[in-house]
Design a protein around this nucleic acid. Structure first.
Lengths: 225, 225
DNA sequence: GTCTATAACAGGATAGAC
DNA sequence: GTCTATCCTGTTATAGAC
């Protein structure tokens, strides 16, 4: 466990929300000269990788600096501390993953095909869900860390529900299937599948859960609809 | 992150499996005199509590000693190190929880009632699953820590499957429902429900997942069976 | 903005008295 | 079996030069 918050902790750190940067987000200055990525970007990129690999508690600022090639000063120049670095990294990760989800559900295919496409997309089950792997860390009680993860899972659930409602309106679902609880069940199966795969240390556990979910969708589909 | 394994690590520590104790498991000696709980028991009890509250990585031997009232020497007298203490604690936790599961599924009620009873049993969703909350810790790559958790989830899945097969044999399930994948789906929903509740910091997320699972069971039940 | 040096403390384990 | 004292390294953050 890290040092408990001491008198060194800034009283306003909880309210930290980033700052105006003097360089443009793309890492360029002056409009012409190309720059390598700034240390800030390198730090956030390294943190994104480490949060997925090891989680929050097990990732130290030193690990981040070693992987990013930055020095101590860069990290604490750009961020108040570890928590805010992680919050920035999680926000980026959530943005990337939400974009993937939106693309998946925006395709012009029939709604139940989109649901199936989400369920059967490729996953590295043993690595855990890129965002929700942090679910059981004490740090998730901090809103700044929890919110990006919640936004990601919330978006998936909303997309599933919208697709199921579209299918229901089109008469593709058998009577008695309600979109909202069915969407909750499907996202829970996927996230539960990650847990089962990690605990049994076997990708097959995820596959069984997903296969079951696909069969549920099939069973909920109106014949010849 | 803790100190990486150094030359101090015992080469045989991975094979540690406990040892014969000079005192009886109940903490008594000589057959008559009553004893308070041994320090070993206090250490394991404290570890059980802390693993649920904080997980493995975030629980230090110092925390365990502080909560148990034991000194450094007691811990390292009874165990080679932190990992083996956690393994002992997890083994006890799994044994306790498996006993609860077995009792739940051993009742003389109809099989689908047992399934519903498991799904709707009371849970502290925000605390996470007592065992599977450790799923995403790096330590789960150690068999001694993973196996008790896997045994617990495996037992639940086996009990669900057996009940569903019994229901199917009795003609209570609609055709096309296969016990094995349905059991995989149900355990995934419960474990996924914990993840959703933690991430959204809302017990209602677990309730929605469970409600959906109960509706699935209802939908899979043959009318008037 | 970025670096190195250093502080203050926690984590995990050992030594050896009793 | 249990205790206290101690060790070494890692973690998180600050200081201050460049």
């Amino acid at each position: 466990m890290p040092p408990r918050p001491t008198s060194r902790a800034r009283p306003d750190a909880l309210a930290w929300r980033g700052r105006a940067r003097h360089t443009a987000p793309g890492g360029r200055r002056g409009g012409v000269a190309r720059q390598g990525p700034s240390k800030r970007e390198a730090i956030v990129a390294a943190t994104k990788a480490l949060l997925w690999e090891r989680g929050y508690e097990a990732t130290s600022p030193r690990d981040v600096l070693a992987r990013s090639g930055a020095g101590q000063g860069s990290l604490y120049h750009h961020f108040p501390g570890k928590r805010e670095v992680a919050a920035a990294a999680l926000a980026e990760m959530a943005g990337e993953e939400i974009a993937v989800i939106d693309a998946l559900f925006a395709s012009g295919t029939p709604p139940l095909d989109r649901v199936r496409a989400y369920l059967t997309r490729e996953r590295q089950a043993l690595r855990g869900c890129r965002l929700a792997r942090l679910a059981n860390e004490a740090a998730m009680e901090e809103p700044a860390l929890r919110e990006p993860v919640a936004a990601y899972l919330g978006r998936i659930q909303a997309c599933l529900r919208a697709s199921l409602e579209e299918a229901k309106a089109a008469g593709s679902l058998i009577p008695g299937i309600e979109p909202a609880p069915f969407a909750a069940v499907l996202i829970a199966i996927v996230e539960g599948g990650y847990v089962l795969a990690r605990v049994h240390w076997d990708e097959a556990a995820m596959r069984e859960a997903i296969d079951g979910a696909v069969q549920l969708v099939a069973a909920a589909t109106r014949p010849q609809a």
